[in-house]
Each structure stands twice: as structure tokens, then as C-alpha cells.
Amino acid sequence: MSYRYSDENTPPPARKASEVAQTTFEHVYEVDPRLMQTHVLQQVFPNWDTLRIMHARHDHLEWMHHHFAHTTISGSELMGDTTT
């Protein structure tokens, strides 16, 4: 986390991700701000908070996997070997 206010409040430049969404950090997507102008306004998040939310989500999903099973087998491991 940067200690400068301006650094924390300047996300990477947004790139269009689809007709209705844009992306800033890798894996971070936002609704296109044009769609949040009437009923709900888009909020400004400091970068550290945006990244915290994203990482917390990943931690949560990781926790769920371990809660239900000891290991997760990935599909890509099995895909190449569908003969037996």
C-alpha cells in the first residue's frame, strides 16, 4: 500500500472488458460507470481496498474447497487422459 493518497486513489487506467463492464487490476472487473449514473452511483474505492476484497474472495473460495474435501482435482489433469 502506498502512503500517498493520490497513489491509492488512482487505479490503473480502465480497459473495456465488454459492452457493460471494464477492468482495472488483473481479475478486477467493474460495471461500466455509464450504467451507474441514475439510481446507484459508483463508489470510489482505494486500491488497497479493491485488492483486499478480491483477495478475500479468493481466500473464501479456498476455504470452501478445504471445508468440503481434502484435495481439489483439476479438470485439466483429466482432460488429456480420457481413455480409461
Binding site: 450504467l35 473460495l61 470452501m64 483439476s74
Partner: peptide, 24 residues
């Protein structure tokens, strides 16, 4: 893997609504 892990907990569904003009 991510989507399945998220299926056990579908409570987080705020602000997905859109008007016909597309506004959130």
C-alpha cells in the same frame, strides 16, 4: 473450481439489477 466453491454460498447478490435501459 472458483465457481463451484461459490455455489455453497449464494447470499452475495446485491446490485445485479438493471432497468430496461441498462442502468444499475
Amino acid at each position: 473450481e472458483g465457481d463451484w466453491a461459490a455455489r455453497h454460498d449464494r447470499y452475495a447478490t446485491p446490485l445485479h439489477g438493471r432497468t430496461k435501459s441498462g442502468q444499475v
